[in-house]
Simulated assay, not measured.
Amino acid sequence: MSHPATDRSVERHFASFREFYPYYLSEHENRTCRRLHFAGTSLVIGVILAAIVRGNPMWLLLAPLAGYGFAWVGHFFFEKNKPATFKHPLYSFIGDWVMYWDVLRGKIPF
């Protein structure tokens, strides 16, 4: 029997991010997908830093492309699922940053 937080056949409604995060991780079981997320999030950080250092906010236009571009390649070609951001945009955005931090701390295999 599947766990309700990870069952992909049931559309879920989450009362909190704490409830959502196990589902989010279940959508990122493929190592290449996680690595692409990590690369995209790292690029987002780089783009934000470039915007600050150069004093040019136009750099920020690249942030969504870097973040979502890498993530969506990971989902469509490696994880073979639809990104959670389509149904849970805010929690997914937060989830990406929490997963990034968890990878940095060694809590999630890279």
Rank of each mutant, 00 (worst) to 15 (best):
L62D: 06
K87R: 06
V103P: 12
L60W: 01
V10Y: 05
A50S: 15
L36E: 14
W72F: 07
T6E: 12
T6D: 09
F14K: 04
E11Y: 08
R34L: 04
M99G: 07
F70A: 14
L90N: 00
L60P: 09
D102I: 12
D102S: 05
G67F: 08
H37F: 11
A15L: 06
H13I: 11
P89E: 02
R35S: 11
A39G: 09
A71Y: 10
W97F: 15
S42G: 15
A15Y: 01
V47T: 12
Y91S: 03
L25N: 14
V10T: 12
L49V: 14
F20G: 09
P4F: 03
A71Q: 10
K107A: 11
H88Y: 12
R8F: 11
L90H: 02
G106Y: 13
L90M: 09
R12I: 00
A71W: 08
L104V: 13
Y68H: 01
R105P: 13
H37C: 06
L25H: 02
F14V: 13
R12E: 08
R18N: 10
T6W: 03
H88Q: 10
F76H: 03
S16A: 08
I94F: 07
A50P: 05
G55I: 11
E11V: 12
F38Q: 07
M99N: 06
N81D: 14
L61Q: 01
N56I: 03
Y91H: 07
K107S: 13
T6S: 12
I48L: 10
Y24C: 06
A63M: 06
N81E: 15
W72P: 07
F110A: 14
R31Q: 10
E19Q: 15
S42K: 01
E11K: 07
F86C: 00
K87W: 03
S2I: 07
C33D: 14
E29S: 13
N56M: 03
T32E: 10
Y21H: 14
E27M: 11
F70Y: 04
F93C: 01
F93P: 03
I108H: 06
F110G: 11
A84H: 06
S9D: 14
D7R: 01
W101D: 13
Y21D: 10
N56T: 03
R34W: 11
A66W: 05
C33M: 03
S26K: 00
L104F: 15
P22K: 04
F78E: 11
R12W: 02
F93R: 00
S26D: 15
